[in-house]
Design a binder for these strands. Structure first.
Lengths: 232, 232
DNA sequence: CACGGGTTTGGAGCGGCGCTCCAAACGTGG
DNA sequence: CCACGTTTGGAGCGCCGCTCCAAACCCGTG
């Protein structure tokens, strides 16, 4: 039988952490979380496992690095001279759009929150809340609410995108599927869910997200103004 | 050689979906998300794969069912005669405690949000907000904020628990590890994170969560001017 | 009581995963 | 030109979720 080449030739262009992370991001964006396998990476980069693991700790490290690359510019690249409340809305919207464009980020944010991405978000929100006039001792609570809300929405988006990609339909067909699934819900047990179902078609996730941010900001301002606000 | 039994004897006690879900819940509580493998289940139930897959669609189905079993009683078993704002705080706290006791639930909630567990949460929150006097057309926004905040916190708790279980230390040692990881953060880039770090030890997740709920409720009331105001 | 069809069970086996490990290929300083 | 550290490629390991089928059981019928 043919003398098989015992080894493939070495790649010409140098491999590096950035190149690998970039390739991973492309796979994630194009085919979703599930498609990022080490095997897929070796194929796309025309290399082997060893080369990849020489630059990257493991699959988690890769996901986290890709997440940081998506998040960092969003919370950083923002004109500093804007009015604080508008700046906060801008940061929130920027995050929403980034996660909408890269849904796998939403899942990753809730998976390892101590990595830079979430720290960046917390820092950005915190700083702008301070600029808004929130007193120092209320900062961590206020920032916590906003960040957790953002992370919650991010997780939902990721879940939706996963379902959408898995069933290979477009957005409106997906909404129809959800509506159908809720159709035979017990109306006595789920009145509110069914009411929300009626408005599914005209519903805009982005708008609702922003409304939520405003609502929380109002709560922060009101709580701060009244001294200690709220029941305790 | 010994005539090997071609097959193990049949189990005596009947298998059922509930028995399987219960066993899964026990594994999850005792050893965490990662420990729930089909193999582990067959061992614990002294059975085979076929028997399990006869009652359960797949691993996801199992996780979802276990999640529902944890969540349902929390949002249902509540005296109906309580004052709305207190009832909302009670629901939120009940969820927090349930997720604190079963951290894997926190991860599952953000993974398949259209399953009963999240619907139950949304329904419960929605109904009590209506009782609070929130106008119908603002309900979905308001409920969305609260639910997403809860899901965000749930995800964080799950992540913390995962890290804690993975490294096999107790809570205070874990906090020390987190603090240490943040110690060599750039103070110019992360001033707020470092400030929060100083208060890590005296920090109570449950209290902060509740403060967040109050803050959001204040925001809801302020934006809709219900005129009632309730607990103060 | 025989028996036959439907249901429930046990487990071998499949394809695929993340990851380890080592030898080959390369770059570089002496 | 050689010796040695770095970078690369890929065979292989252990484990996973899951499929599939035959064995065991249950029960209505004659």
């Amino acid at each position: 039988m043919a003398a098989k080449a015992h080894r493939a030739p070495r790649r010409t262009e140098a491999l590096s952490r950035d190149v690998i992370v970039k390739a991973a991001t492309e796979i994630l964006d194009a085919e979703g979380e599930g498609a990022l396998t080490l095997k897929a990476l070796t194929v796309r980069l025309a290399t082997g496992y060893g080369a990849i693991y020489h630059h990257v700790a493991d699959r988690n490290d890769l996901l986290a690095a890709a997440t940081d690359h998506v998040i960092a510019p969003v919370v950083t690249d923002l004109a500093a001279d804007t009015e604080p409340r508008q700046a906060l809305r801008a940061v929130a919207l920027g995050l929403f759009d980034a996660i909408d464009a890269h849904p796998w980020v939403g899942a990753q944010l809730t998976r390892e929150p101590w990595r830079p991405a979430v720290l960046d978000i917390y820092e950005s929100v915190s700083g702008r809340l301070r600029a808004l006039g929130v007193p120092e001792r209320a900062l961590s609570d206020s920032a916590g609410v906003l960040v957790n809300y953002i992370l919650g929405v991010a997780g939902q988006n990721a879940a939706n995108a996963r379902a959408l990609a898995g069933s290979k339909m477009d957005r409106s067909a997906f909404l129809a599927t959800v509506a159908a699934r809720w159709a035979d819900l017990d109306p006595a047990k789920y009145p509110s869910v069914l009411k929300a179902r009626a408005h599914l078609r005209e519903h805009d996730d982005r708008e609702q997200f922003l409304a939520g941010v405003d609502l929380i900001l109002t709560g922060i301002e009101a709580t701060h103004r009244t001294g200690d606000g709220a029941a305790r």
